[in-house]
Design a protein around this nucleic acid. Structure first.
Length: 506
RNA sequence: GCCGCGUUGGUCAAUCGGCUAAGACGCCUCCCUUUCACGGAGGAAUGACGGGUUCGACUCCCGUACGUGGUACCA
């Protein structure tokens, strides 16, 4: 690659960041790192969206949490500041005017009501999707139809207007997408998109082109939903005389809903019982959306899951570190088809990563949960317990559910699992067991087990039939690590107490 | 409706014309464990359809169907 690689992540801060956005950022990051280039964060805010409180910070925090931080842009600084669209407002007008002067764009004075009227009229006459285009613009109020002096007057009077691109007739616009190859469009299929709105803010179309050009972006990755407007962008580069500087485009496949139709939307998460946001997010209406982080996901797991959604390195390996991803990443190996979000697989990745984390980190997370429940335990004990139950934890915050009986006596007992086979022989076994345990000097797994089994043999009862009641006495139910391990961990006194206590319930 | 993009098991997917079509998630069976889980061994399950091109097509081309995106002074 001869040009310096510079990619950008340009979310609009309209709400939190959903995983589609995270994946776009991730691909940008991997590509930039792979080629030793820059990864910058641009914020596409507008007058309407820039006031969504905390959205920008949320985006930055997400990238930080995921470990895919930009090295330039909002929050990071750089030579091409400002990086916030709202702060670049003055420069867009200049380029829009340049296009008008060159005859590639024009002023349009139509009010929203007039536009609606036009669309209604066209619909009535059989046009299903009326457009402001080469045909209709002749009947509208714009600088193409109005006399020059009238236009001048209107502008001088400060009349509200927009600037629209003048799409040529019967031209073919094509470009080579990094993922899809050559894509072509007929210009009469696309309408005269608004470039500059009446409030002087650019639309996305003008903004991407101007920003990508002025920020020297070399490769532009975005969701597939932008593909239909790509010809507008290509033409804009041409009309502005920047054709040679046009970035290489890659339109990423969409992430689809797991249950059928459409792309995964921000509202799908809580509806289907899984998060779609990176972090917890409260919308303007006060609606709470849960995030992967708070749900107990590890960023490495989320990233690993997402990177494989729409991309595959062609090796059997599935668990990758960020560095490995960078090494293997190849934009041309990104799929063309959308991929459905699979929460089960996502959980599987998380389980894999939870197994890798240290007991100490797991203990940190668990400590907070214990505090909420007013349980205090020694740190070393906590870490030991974390180690014992880790393999059955899918989430970081699963320890309590799998280990509560290490911290407090079981409140309920699964008596149904014991009762049917319970008898006086077994009861007397446990009565004796208590005293045998009491005499036991060495409270280690093996000695507890030996003591237990020896007594079973002596009483002529199958060990297996005794282990289950023992487990239920200690944990309350049919779950948990090996019983003797539990007995060893909670200690001799506690074990004896629990057996005594349980005997009263059986 | 029109335009764009896509289509290998339920899901993520490998294959760059030679296929007895990898692997993973999920599901099922068995082993380990008289708990749950982990681990191990197996299993069921895939090229949308119809035409070409070719000695040979999942791979290339065309049509159809289906899916999906766009069709806003939203991004």
């Amino acid at each position: 690659m001869d040009k310096k690689v510079r990619v950008r992540f340009a979310p609009s801060p309209t709400g939190g960041l959903h995983i589609g956005g995270v994946r776009t950022a991730l691909f940008n990051y991997l590509f930039a790192k792979k080629h030793g280039g820059d990864f910058l964060l641009r914020i596409e805010d507008t007058d309407q969206t820039r006031f969504v409180e905390g959205a920008e910070e949320y985006i930055i925090e997400t990238l930080k949490w995921c470990g895919i931080e930009p090295n330039e842009g909002v929050g990071y600084g750089g030579d091409y500041a400002p990086y916030r669209q709202s702060e670049r407002k003055p420069m867009y007008r200049q380029y829009a005017e340049q296009l008008v002067a060159a005859g590639h764009a024009y002023y349009a004075f139509d009010t929203p009501e007039e536009l609606d009227e036009m669309r209604e009229r066209m619909k009535a006459s059989g046009n299903a999707a009326p457009q402001y285009n080469w045909a209709t613009r002749e009947y509208m109020k714009n600088s193409l139809t109005l006399p020059a002096d009238v236009v001048k007057e209107k502008l001088a009077a400060g009349e509200k207007h927009v600037i629209r691109i003048k799409m040529p007739r019967n031209e073919e616009v094509k470009f080579e997408d990094l993922i899809r190859g050559w894509v072509s469009f007929q210009t009469n299929q696309v309408d005269d998109k608004v470039l500059l709105k009446a409030d002087n803010m650019p639309t996305y179309h003008l903004a991407v082109v101007v920003d990508d050009y002025t920020m020297k972006i070399s490769h532009a990755f975005r969701g597939e939903e932008w593909l239909p407007s790509a010809p507008v962008h290509v033409l804009l580069y041409k009309y502005l005389g920047w054709e040679a500087e046009m970035p290489l485009w890659a339109h990423l496949p969409l992430i689809l809903k797991p249950d059928g139709n459409g792309k995964l939307s921000k509202r799908d998460g809580d509806r289907l019982g899984f998060p779609v946001f990176s972090l917890d997010w409260t919308t303007k209406d006060g609606e709470r959306q849960s995030g992967f982080r708070e749900r107990g996901f590890l960023p490495e797991a989320l990233i690993n899951f997402l990177v494989l959604l729409g991309w595959n390195p062609g090796v059997v390996q599935e668990i990758f570190t960020l560095d490995e991803m960078i090494k293997l990443f190849d934009i041309e190996r990104v799929h063309q088809a959308g991929a459905k979000f699979d929460f089960d697989k996502c959980k599987w990745f998380n389980h894999q990563y939870v197994q890798k984390i240290s007991n100490s980190v797991l203990a940190d997370v668990t400590e907070k949960i214990l505090a909420e429940k007013n349980v205090t335990v020694e740190r070393a004990y906590l870490e030991h317990v974390c180690g014992l139950v880790k393999e059955r934890c899918t989430f970081m915050n699963d320890v309590w559910d799998n280990a509560f009986f290490f911290f407090q006596r079981p409140i309920t007992f699964d008596v149904e699992a014991v009762k049917p086979k319970w008898n006086d022989d077994k009861k007397s076994f446990f009565d004796v067991l208590i005293s045998k345990f009491d005499e036991l000097n060495n409270w280690e797994n093996t000695s507890i087990e030996k003591c237990f089994k020896d007594l079973a043999t002596e009483k002529n009862i199958k060990v297996g039939e005794l282990q289950m009641p023992f487990r239920i006495m200690l944990c309350g139910g049919k779950f948990g690590p090996p019983v003797f391990e539990i007995a060893h961990t909670i200690g001799k006194t506690e074990t004896i107490e629990r057996v005594k206590n349980a005997l009263l319930n059986f």
